[in-house]
Amino acid sequence: MTVSRRRFLEWVAAAGVGTAAASSAKAAHGEFSGYPDSYGVLFDATLCLGCRSCEKACNEVNKLPAPGKPFTDLTVFDEKRRTDYRTFTVVNRYNDTGADKPVYRKIQCNHCLEPACASACFVGAFKKTPEGAVEYDASVCVGCRYCIIACPFNIPAYEYNEALTPRVMKCTLCLPRLREGKLPGCVEACPVEALTFGRRKDLIAIAHEKIRKYPGRYIDHIYGQHEMGGTSWMYLSGVPYTKIDLRTDLGTTPAPEFTSGALAMVPMVIGLWPVLLGGIYKITQRKEKIADAERRQEVANAIAATQGEADAKARAAAEKFQKEKERAVDMAVKKALADADKEKGKEGE
């Protein structure tokens, strides 16, 4: 079998794209339980006082613009807030939790082990760093905001009011500070150490220890241990997690796995569709060719038939003519003979 140059080039192209997509698909199908020594934070909702020191510290450390209401204003708790372009973290108060006092919960990026934002970003602006933080690179971001669609926790915010340099804004786990050996701003500021900072695996052990030591105090579940494939920021609570706005219906499938199946189909389509379509085209062509040939045959037959008919007709006419001619000749001869006889008879008298 000879392979045309074009065919060979098509294969190489398909293989190349296929490998690229397949290898990424494979990575998403594999299991990733976090970089071995990555850090995390454990938030204890039973300790949080709702003092907003963490919000203040975050604002200062990240040099964010001043908020509408000062951080000492506790009336902000009267409504539910979310992160926005100048607020990487907020604390919300929850009154109807079934506990005898309000429960506070700090909201910020959960730095998932397999982040949905990183999976969604088509310029790779998000990276899960070995330190545990999910880092955003504003220098490549195109601003499509697919990451905001993807995040199941509704964390990333966008600078909609920036005309030319809008960025996605979210908690950085104070990665620059971590690299200097310092603590994240919010962790350092919390007066009751409701935020515990450490290696993720240690935090899980700590959390289990707390549940064991104070069984009446905690729900026996560490939120973030497995949710969405695991997050670096985990929560302990004394009230059901749905009461403090932590969704328990997100499942444990890491986000990239939702799309890895669809992406894996790409090389299949690239490989098989040309074969299928090319095949159909060839079949169509062949059908046309056969139809064409049949038609031509028909025409030829028709011509031959007509020709045959015409020939037969001509022959018949010729024969007829011949016969008539002969008869006419016969008749003429007979007449001539008769005339001659007549003549002869007349002369004889």
């Binding site: 997509a21 990424s24 969604a120 970003c121 088509f122 310029v123 790779g124 602006a125 799309t259 890895s260």
Partner: peptide
């Protein structure tokens, strides 16, 4: 920078 994990 190619974000090949992304459907987009």
């Amino acid at each position: 920078s190619q974000g090949v994990t992304s459907v987009m």
